[in-house]
Design a protein around this nucleic acid. Structure first.
Lengths: 378, 378
DNA sequence: GCTCATTCCTTGACATCATCAACAAACCTG
DNA sequence: CAGGTTTGTTGATGATGTCAAGGAATGAGC
């Protein structure tokens, strides 16, 4: 909850509405939340007194009647820490309440020993909260089966962990409330509140990077399955006579669409094992035929993945993101063709939004999870 | 709402809990709903007075303390009508509050003219509500894009309808509150409250019949997308060099798994155009090699569909249903193999429940939708 | 058989929270 | 400046839940 104020359910809903949908007058907030104007007045009063809300300078005029007094969340009223763990690095960001990144840092992660990792996270948090700039909560995101609110990481393949109470350990080390969440879900939460998902009650986020991922928001709620993953689209079958993936499937989506698979395909085809993914992308942009073809096939696979997700879940919007999403412009044609071909004929076309991606987005997602679960919980 | 009583939110939650989870003591209901025992006493009092709830004869003893007084919904307190429309027939059932079928009827549907169909539905409802046995609400289910609570059918391919306010027309003809819903979603709702989905906050229902369908419950809510379908699994790609479906895709799931495709495949292979689906199934049971193989391939396709749905949505339970679900025992081995092969390696295995199916289940699902939207709404 | 612990259920006092009605505030129009 | 319109505030009211207290109905121990 917000540090001083005791957050009631009503206060929380008004606060979130103002946080997500920008400055709103009391009257407008009342309409959106199906409350009476008097209720909004009463609910916002303590939040104004505590400085979490501010009166905005009055905006548009020209309408009749008393001018509205827009209210807005003071984003600087509290800070959040988001941490993303990968196999060999730790990314951390400090954000304001609207998840705008203020500072970021990046550290190597040498050991996978739990205590070492906790210590590294603790250092990073200290470095981002020094000099009289405390933070309100910490969110940690990583690949694997971590899920919403539970401080325990059931399994993390790349760290080799099983049932590690990472949230509790970091909370003890930092003295800050801490949550742990799957990285794709964290990214999805960030898009839900502060990205292309704002105003959409259902959407999907598909990530392209070393692997493929998918986060879902359905009915305004982030989909999260205890014990099972969600959005496991990497092994969706694209061509049953395609290349093998590492799990022995033929023609998985990840065997076409992941940056690792693309790099491998281009490198072996051109017999240049030195090529990075970015170099492959540059080759395709320059028109190198083999590279172009490989990216086209990736676009086709991605389009089919997106169509399948939309067909099954009924989402109207799919956000494309991830480290390798910059490749979209090279394969947009193949992507759109595959998306159209596989979208069910009774459905309206899917809206696709491509989000330019920087790696700190992962950590930002973790900060949003901290906000949702440890600041605005209950 | 329940005819006499004004249903508050609290009363509704207690009533639904008792309806779905059988007889419960007040204390147990309070624990499940996170209410105080006194609240349950107060909420149930008017429902007991109106006869919607009954005291059960006390059940198990042997524990300490005052024995509990189980409460249960009186299923006979009100009746529901469910109607399922197909291209050429109308099925209607009369059920009690627990969706147990009391009477059913089946009529040909000759004309697709809206007024004619409304008239036929009106007749069926009258026949099921005659002799002093009124019903409380009507639910109508049909294939297409109808969705939750909206009385308008946006599109119905097999009836050739666009934007028909079927719910309002039937309500006017019968004098009963009426809802319209997609048939697969209706079936899913029935499983959620009175079938294998009870107690599961998320599950999927996959139907096998003339086509393939999929309904989703995620976070205790039936997934429904305005304007778009959900659970459109029929055109999921299984083999990219497989047979064509009618939309020009190669190797769609429905080209393997639907009863129509199976019948066609067996009939052409054996050059016996007279074969019905049931006859094909009988051949496979007898060991006819071609028929066996075709059903195995169907099982494989179904297993892949179920795995894909589970991978994307994270559901732990999949219910198999539909007119052709009886074929499961013939293809269980191929189904299980495909399900295992395509289930993501980080996930726990999916629970699969096969529901024996009769056609009146479709109409029963419609009755449950009527119950949810017109009896227990608001 | 009596007491005691235990669990269930009910009752009335109380707290919380939202609405309603009334009204003040601040603007535009003419 | 009067009249209309929309916003925002205030206090009375009502709905809905909890809490504390106690009665009811049982098993356990002596």
């Amino acid at each position: 909850m917000l540090s001083d104020a005791h957050l009631t359910e009503g206060m929380r809903s008004v606060f979130v509405e103002l946080l997500v949908h920008g400055p709103l007058s009391r009257a407008e907030a009342a309409r959106r939340l199906d409350l009476s104007p008097s209720a909004v007045t009463k609910l916002t009063k303590p939040l104004l007194e505590n400085g979490y809300l501010l009166h905005q300078p009055v905006g548009d005029r020209g309408t009749m009647g008393r001018p509205s007094q827009p209210l807005a969340v003071d984003p600087a009223r509290a800070a959040l820490i988001g941490v993303k763990l990968t196999e060999d690095e730790l990314f951390a960001v400090r954000t304001d309440l609207r998840a705008e990144i203020q500072r970021e840092l990046r550290r190597p992660l040498i050991s996978h020993d739990v205590d070492d990792v906790v210590a590294r996270i603790g250092e990073a948090v200290r470095d981002l909260t020094g000099s009289g700039q405390p933070a309100a909560a910490v969110g940690i995101s990583l690949a694997g089966t971590a899920s919403g609110g539970n401080p325990v990481v059931p399994t993390s393949p790349f760290l080799g962990w099983r049932n590690v109470a990472l949230g509790d350990l970091v909370a003890a080390a930092t003295g800050l409330p801490t949550v742990v969440e799957n990285d794709v879900r964290a990214l999805t939460a960030a898009q839900q509140w502060f990205g292309a998902g704002v105003g959409r009650s259902s959407f999907a986020l598909v990530t392209v990077g070393a692997g493929l991922g998918c986060g879902l928001v359905i009915g305004d709620r982030l989909v999260s399955a205890a014990g099972r993953g969600t959005g496991l689209v990497g092994h969706l079958s694209i061509h049953d006579n395609g290349p093998l993936c590492e799990m022995g499937h033929r023609g998985c989506a990840r065997a076409y669409g992941s940056s690792a698979a693309i790099r491998r395909a281009v490198a072996t085809t051109l017999d240049r094992s030195d090529l990075t993914f970015e170099a492959c992308l540059a080759l395709a942009r320059e028109g190198q035929p083999a590279a172009r073809r490989i990216f086209e096939e990736a676009g086709h696979a991605l389009g089919q993945v997106v169509a399948t997700v939309a067909n099954i879940t009924g989402v109207q919007l799919v956000i494309l993101s991830g480290e390798a999403v910059a490749m979209y412009d090279v394969c947009a044609e193949a992507f759109d063709a595959a998306l159209t071909a596989h979208t069910h004929w009774t459905s309206t076309p899917v809206d696709v939004v491509v989000k330019p991606f920087t790696f700190s987005e992962w950590a930002r997602g973790a900060a949003v999870i901290a906000l949702q679960h440890r600041i605005l919980a209950r």
